[in-house]
Every structure is written in structure tokens, then in C-alpha cells.
Amino acid sequence: MDNARNSRKGGKSEYATFFLKNALCGIALSSIQEISKPSRLTVVHQSPDYVMGVINLRGKIVTIIDTGKLLGLTPIKRSDDMRNIIVNLDEEFVGLMVDRIGNVITVEPAQADMPPANIGDVPGRCFDAVYKTNNEVVGLLSLDSIF
């Protein structure tokens, strides 16, 4: 994403972090519309298997994606912690279901590195960069490469 690239050049940017099983990932705050608790899903039959269904977001039909399955990891486990990150993808809202939501972090450009081959089990191509906080490594996801 532009933000990640900018961050390497010098500008600070904010990322919302979330967990996919144990892997900590981040997504640019600017691309996020909102984060919501899962609401009642309507299953769409014959849809791709990474699509969990559709929800009504204030009159808009939003497709909910199982982010775990989309990235080829374990599917999201139903729990009270799971959250729906609604992102704006080419003028359309799409919901990314994640296992658990983390903090918002500010990425210092100096600490962002090129992504390794993989983080946890997530393939490296999904990430724009990796960011090391004091004790953790966050993979910064880009919407362009995961869809």
C-alpha cells in the first residue's frame, strides 16, 4: 500500500493490528471503514469458499471474507473475540473476519523492513513490509496483494 511505501520514505502512518490464529498482522487505518462485531450472516450458496456470507451494513450489502481461508491459513474460529474489519476496496465495502483485534500502532519508517518469505504461516507476498515493535513482529498487509 501507499502508506507502507511512504513509511519507508519517512512519513509516519497508523495501522490497526489483528490476529489470524497467532500471526499478528496490520492493515492501514486509512483503508478501514469501521470495525464491528460480527452480525447475522446470510450464507450465499455456491460462493467461493473464502466467502463467509453477506451482511447488512446500514443498507449496504457487504461481503464477509474469512481472512484465514483467503490467505490459505486455518479458517477463522467462531468466538466472542472475532471481529469484522470493514475495508473500502475499490468503491465497495468488504468485511475481513479476523480472530482477534489488537492495538493501533504507529509505524516508524525506520523500523519497517522488507517482508521475509513468510510470517507465521502467512506467505510473504501478502505483506508490504514487516514492522518490529519492542517484542513483536507485525506483518503489514496490503489489500492490493491479498485480493
Binding site: V44, Q46, V51, G59, I61, D90, F93
Partner: peptide, 14 residues
Amino acid sequence: VKPLGKHLKECRGF
């Protein structure tokens, strides 16, 4: 009537 998202374009029948 509301349109379905692009991930569901391949779902025939809706």
C-alpha cells in the same frame, strides 16, 4: 434490490 459484491459475481442463480 441491492447489488452483490464482486466476490460473489460468480454465484449464478442470484
